[in-house]
Design a binder for these strands. Structure first.
Length: 699
DNA sequence: TCCTCGTAACTTTTT
DNA sequence: GTTACGAGGA
């Protein structure tokens, strides 16, 4: 039986079965597009006998890729990891790992992350002696990225040259530095694949021949460079299906554009278009509000606009609560979440969405206080934590001693007496790589720094020799040799325990490499590309995330926090109608995540940075949907206060004074004092510590 | 050369 | 509330 057609509606069926010409599926929110893609993979393998490893499926995030892998594995009843389900960036990195030498890169090139990139730009600006007020590293980074996303087109270059007359010089010196470090930034990875394919037709052919069919999810958020990669892989064949929704285009700042979806038909002649407008997710009231909101948007793509419909019931009203301030808003959301729990919902049914991630701070506190399990999705990125980056920088440098940013990070960490002066000397000897540079510089050095550098070179050489055999062992030996724990203890007296725990977590991941059959090289690549992976997502916890991170997800209960002008829409969009359009689409994405309950909240006053409170205005988008929104009075402002008084007793956190607990690093202990979110614990081995209860487990 | 302390500036959104 | 940077002393 054709189980890949099971319980699909006519349009979905058509989308699954169509393969004779390029296919553009315009799929509205909640219209079952992921199902279409998964079932299409089933159809291609089962009916057309295309092997799974000859199907390329591209998703927007690593999380989505992993989810799709799981679904495909379940649907095809197989155990092996599908190889070619990935994001554009990981696909490109995979290709380059194999082909880099054709572009003049070494095979062991590194991917510079946000921080490495910014530091390199700072170096460039310093070297060129440019005014830091005018040339803000952050803005320059943005400009270079925009240039790359537009294939360095002259008109874009002209545009940025007006603002930054030296942008061309900066750009080329920056590229020079990257090349010297055998490094690529995020945009280079994509751009280099296009370059590779255009300069080497035989390599392009080789990769074309690898795939019989290509599927792309979230097509509305691909940019020109990604589009070009697709074109090269597809060639003049018809074997492509893309799925997207211009109404949900929320990444124009990364080169996407809702109009791009119109260009698909131009670039792939003979395209068939199928619309999926039936929504299986939300109740009528939520959908109608969403339709109303988006109908006010402008743009050419509106000819492609989808009007969602459902045969579900009217459902609950959308609710709006205005709280006195941000703290109360967070407390209210936590309290209200508890009510849903009492009504029979799971914590994992609830998501809190926000426009800006700093709003998570109040929410986190409120949830700790209320003793509700929560998870911040994508907020703090594990691989971007300083302590993780420190250890990884050692490994990175051992792998690629050209890696300038890794070198500069670790050469004096922990401090071994190598400062600016010594570094300048080493730089003079730089030819091939930093390790060689140090060795060549050694004879001209003396005293403390000479000894320190000798030790450093030996340390790195030692790592280089053993790293591939047993990365976990090498890393923990490194940890001991450089006395990293002491370093953390001194540098971060407040939270060094957490940081030690993080490093231990990294070691665990390294240990699991051989089990998963991954090389360290692949691991390092993943760490730079896959940042907000939440491996704990099965947890029964409330999810707190940005609207961007919520893309593609759905929840029975959705809160949108901070529905205020200046927050949502962002204040930066006020004087730019184009950006304001994006904010509108973003709000559309936010509300279409909800299946049953949509609760909007705002704070009448919000503390901008530390203490200064500012009064706020309700979001302008509320006007557009006001006929669907019921403004309700939150049950007095006392609630959060009551919460504060009851919580020190400890019942709400699930802990009590005198309770036996376990900590990942300190081992067993007993709670001496409870002051949520913190607790004083006397540990068996290390004595008394004050730490956050979320790191404790009951025994 | 390292370290401490004060201040300014800051937060979209993420691969 | 946090972080990045610069000045000045050890």
């Amino acid at each position: 039986m054709s189980d890949f057609l099971e319980s699909l509606n006519p349009e979905q069926k058509k989308a699954v079965l169509h393969f004779t010409s390029p296919l553009l599926v315009l799929a509205g929110a909640g219209s079952g597009k992921t199902r279409v893609i998964t079932n299409k993979i089933m159809f291609l393998t089962k009916e057309l006998d295309i092997p799974l490893n000859r199907i390329l499926a591209i998703t927007f995030t690593n999380k989505a890729a992993n989810e799709m892998k799981e679904r495909v594995k379940a649907a095809l009843n197989i155990d092996t990891e599908p190889q070619w389900i990935s994001t554009f960036h990981s696909l490109a990195a995979k290709i380059l790992r194999i082909e880099a030498q054709h572009l003049g890169y070494g095979k062991n090139f590194v991917i510079y992350d946000e921080e490495d990139t910014k530091k390199t730009i700072r170096e460039v600006l310093e070297e060129l002696n440019l005014d830091k007020e005018l040339y803000k590293p952050e803005r320059i980074k943005e400009a270079i990225s925009q240039l790359k996303q537009n294939f360095n087109q002259q008109d874009v270059l002209d545009f940025f040259s007006m603002q930054y007359p030296h942008i061309k010089k900066i750009y080329s010196l920056y590229q020079e530095k990257l090349a010297l470090a055998n490094a690529m930034d995020f945009d280079d990875i994509l751009l280099n694949v296009v370059k590779l394919f255009e300069e080497n037709p035989e390599i392009r052919k080789k990769w074309q021949n690898k795939f019989d069919y290509i599927l792309v999810d979230e097509y509305q958020d691909t940019n020109k460079v990604q589009h070009q990669i697709l074109k090269h892989i597809v060639g003049d064949r018809d074997c492509i299906t893309v799925v997207g929704d211009p109404q949900q285009c929320i990444y124009t700042w990364r080169g996407a554009n809702p109009e791009n979806i119109l260009d698909f038909e131009k670039d792939f002649p003979n395209t068939t278009v199928i619309k999926l407008e039936r929504n299986y997710r939300s109740t009528k009231k939520i959908l109608e509000a969403a339709n109303k909101l988006i109908s006010a948007s402008k743009g050419k793509w509106k000819e492609k606009v989808l009007t969602l419909w459902t045969d579900k019931g009217e459902g609950e009203d959308i609710k709006l609560f205005k709280l006195e301030n941000d703290k109360q808003e967070a407390g209210f959301i936590a309290l209200y979440t508890k009510k849903f729990k009492e009504r029979g919902y799971d914590y994992s049914d609830v998501a809190i969405l926000m426009r800006m991630s700093f709003l998570s701070r109040n929410l986190e506190e409120a949830f700790i206080r209320a003793g509700i399990p929560y998870q911040i999705v994508g907020g703090l990125k594990f691989y971007e934590r300083a302590e993780i980056k420190d250890i990884l920088a050692y490994l990175r440098f051992a792998f690629n001693p050209k890696d300038t940013q890794a070198f500069k990070r670790i050469v004096n960490l922990p401090s071994r007496g190598i400062g600016k002066k010594t570094l300048e000397k080493i730089e003079k000897f730089y030819v091939e790589n930093w390790l060689q540079a140090i060795e060549d510089a050694l004879p001209s050095l003396k005293g403390k720094s000479k000894k320190a550098l000798e030790d450093f070179v030996n340390l790195i050489k030692d790592i280089r020799q053993n790293i591939t055999k047993d990365p976990a062992k090498v890393a923990s030996k490194l940890y001991e040799t450089i006395q990293y724990e002491n370093y953390l203890r001194e540098k971060y007296p407040k939270d060094w325990e957490d940081r030690v725990a993080n490093v231990k977590e990294l070691f665990k991941a390294l240990e699991e490499l051989s089990i998963k059959g991954k090389t360290l090289e692949e691991f390092l690549e993943e760490t730079s590309l896959q940042q907000a992976q939440d491996s704990l997502q099965e947890q029964n916890s409330v999810k707190i995330m940005t609207v961007h991170a919520s893309k593609g997800l759905e929840f029975p209960v959705v809160f949108v926090a901070g529905v205020e002008d200046g927050i949502f829409p962002s204040g930066r969009a006020f004087d730019d109608p184009y950006q304001m359009e994006e904010e509108r689409r973003l709000f559309y994405v936010a509300i279409t995540r909800a299946k049953e309950h949509l609760i909007l909240t705002m704070a009448k006053a919000r503390s901008t940075f530390g203490n200064s409170y500012q009064t706020t205005k309700p979001s302008r988008f509320l006007k557009d949907i006001k006929e669907f929104v019921k403004v309700l009075k939150p049950k007095t402002g006392k609630q959060p206060k009551q919460k504060q008084q009851t919580s020190p007793v400890g019942t709400s956190t699930g802990f009590m004074v005198g309770q036996l607990v376990k900590h990942d690093v300190f081992g067993k202990g007993v709670i001496k004092e409870l002051t949520p979110p913190k607790a004083k614990v006397i540990f068996e081995k290390v004595g008394e510590k004050e730490l956050l209860t979320k790191f404790l487990k009951k025994l």
